[in-house]
Write a protein that binds this DNA or RNA. Structure first.
Lengths: 223, 223
DNA sequence: CTGCAGTCTATTGTATACAAACGGTCAAGG
DNA sequence: CCTTGACCGTTTGTATACAATAGACTGCAG
């Protein structure tokens, strides 16, 4: 996208994630435009995009609000992600070539280095993790699947989870990726799918554990 | 949505489906605005929506074109639909109450009447079918799932398939719905999921059979 | 003849002004 | 005091004008 639209999108997104705009608060186009330093037009584009990602919801009168995420919503998102990314992993395993496989190995090695650093390099882990999953999604060669997953993997609640991971959880994630690589090397789609689904489900429980009882740390959550 | 945006959306969509705008042709915002009798603003909204549904694709320079659908693309869409609607059916089976179940039965009875009419009432079948699947999706109680499926079930290639169905295929579809109702009555999620997946896969093959060898009937298709 | 560079045009991005619609409030009547 | 209606303010929808950009074309030089 272009500069102003990106600025509006990133700005609004950050305001929501940081809790500056709490769940349920109204998002007036004009107010947002002023805060982002752009006009209403790019703000409208950004709101539509965020609405597609379910970060923003609109009432019947077309007014926009910050969406509230219950624990059930989060579980829902993870469940769908497990299903779709599992499917992506299966397709990837059936289609991957040796060059891509090697690239994935390199990527996971980088993740390994980030995990072993002292203190663990969470930003590096997140970037490597994002890249790893992105390559798999691309290898799955399904534009539709990519489009569907796009609105799920960018979810704040998902990637923020890693900030609550201990070193042990990070290490486990890294080793699950290794197992995934083994499945890819054997071109075993069913295996890859099972590992990926398990990988995502574990991530959900890491999230649930980290947030169970904690409150007001993570902004948009209603229950 | 509001009047102008709806007009632009419906108009562009119809132009694409009718083949008036063939696959690959460029969609200039200004030209579309003039043809729909609205300004560029609602056209832009409509294009973004159609892009989300993958009916329109944009190149790197942000220009919009009518998306080309290969048979592989269609199969891809059906495969994802089978997975997601299967999931929806399972959730619905685990959550459905007697009132909703009865509503679904009534809906499928209406489908049955449309199928038995002479000649078969394809429009009635489509409407009943849409309603049937919509109720299941709603009963699944997953906003995210509904949002993901939204971009798949509205696909032209999907619903147009029924126009090529013979009476026998329509009847089979109706009886698969009956079996689904049985699974719902038993609250058997796994069974419901399996039937639904099978139901969608069969629909894909009906499509593939009807279009194998035929050409230029169905507008946007590249292969 | 080919390659590069500059310009030129077509198209989209952005801003802003105006129109329409929804919600809330205040007042009047029962 | 409650209910109902109309009015006004706030917010979004739509149109249009202007800015920026990508791609094509042309002309010049090697």
């Amino acid at each position: 996208m272009s500069r102003a639209t990106d600025r509006a999108y990133a700005g609004i997104r950050n305001m929501i994630l940081s809790g500056e705009l709490p769940a349920g608060s109204q998002l007036g186009e004009e107010a947002l435009a002023e805060r982002c330093g752009v006009s209403r037009t790019p703000v409208r584009d950004a709101l539509r995009r965020l609405e597609g990602e379910l970060l923003v919801k609109r009432n019947e009168a077309q007014r926009s609000f910050v969406a509230a995420w219950s624990l059930a919503d989060v579980e829902d998102a993870f469940e769908l992600r497990a299903m779709l990314e599992g499917h992506a992993a299966r397709r990837a395993a059936e289609r991957i070539d040796d060059v891509t496989l090697e690239a994935l190995r390199a990527c996971n090695n980088a993740i390994g280095r980030a995990v072993r650093a002292d203190p663990p390099d969470v930003a590096g882990f997140l970037e490597g993790n994002r890249e790893f999953h992105a390559v798999i999604l691309e290898t799955a060669q399904s534009r539709r699947l990519a489009s569907l997953l796009g609105s799920l993997i960018e979810q704040p609640v998902v990637w923020r989870t890693a900030h609550h991971y201990g070193r042990e959880a990070l290490r486990r994630s890294h080793s699950e990726h290794d197992e995934l690589l083994a499945a890819f090397a054997r071109r075993d789609g069913a295996w890859a799918q099972a590992i990926m689904a398990s990988h995502i489900h574990r991530a959900f429980h890491a999230y649930a554990d980290a947030h169970h009882g904690l409150s007001a740390i993570d902004g948009p959550r209603s229950a």
